[in-house]
Amino acid sequence: MEAFLVSTGIVALAEIGDKTQLLAFVLATQFRRPLPIVAGIFVATVVNHFCAAAVGTWLTELMGPNVLRWILGLGFIAMAAWIMVPDEIDEDDKPSGNHGVFVATLIAFFLAEMGDKTQIATVALAARFDDMASVVMGTTLGMMLANVPAVYLGRKAATAVNLKLVHGIAAAIFVVLGIATLMGVGEAVGL
């Protein structure tokens, strides 16, 4: 349950103001069909985060616990710094062509999520918690919590949120996770 809750919270906070959330705004503005956009975001996220969690699980098997602890701890701290850097949407991430709304959203969102903060966080969370299903469900829920309002409420939702505060909270959580991981917190209980 901890893996699910931590994954949900971290990704929901990390996604606010992220380039994939900006893409959700663009998709909502361009297509004005929220249901296929939300469905495309959901499917793209499940597939992307499943692959990311599989990499995280593989890393736990590949590396010894000491090496993995240091990589994850320092990785979480690096994520804290990275999350404070504002994102912009790339022209390559914007949907184009005559695909249906669902397909255009699925492709654009999947590609935009490649190498994104939340994808890297999913790799680290899967390696940290060694509970792939809970991490994927949690990170997917976190993405949906951040992006569904973006699709339905548009830019009004973006201006109502203090991005610096939200990013600061997310960064603080990443720092706490990083320090706890470096100190070996959770090893005694099998985390």
Rank of each mutant, 00 (worst) to 15 (best):
L62W: 13
S96N: 07
I83M: 11
V47Y: 03
W82A: 14
A78Q: 07
T105P: 00
L23P: 09
V123Q: 00
F129N: 04
P95G: 10
F31M: 02
D93E: 13
F42V: 06
L145I: 15
K19F: 11
D92L: 03
D87K: 05
T20Y: 08
W70P: 06
L35T: 09
A52Q: 04
A39Q: 05
T122K: 03
L27V: 06
I41C: 07
A127R: 02
N48T: 01
M143Y: 08
V103F: 10
A12M: 15
V43H: 08
A80R: 03
C51F: 15
Q119F: 00
M137I: 04
K94R: 15
T139R: 12
A108L: 00
W82D: 10
F76D: 03
I89C: 02
V136F: 07
A24G: 10
D92Q: 03
L59Y: 04
E15P: 03
P95D: 12
M137Q: 11
A80N: 09
V11H: 10
R69W: 09
G73R: 09
R32A: 12
M132W: 00
E61M: 03
D93Q: 14
D87V: 05
L59Q: 06
G142A: 13
N98R: 13
H49C: 03
I120H: 05
G97V: 00
A127F: 04
T140H: 15
V55I: 06
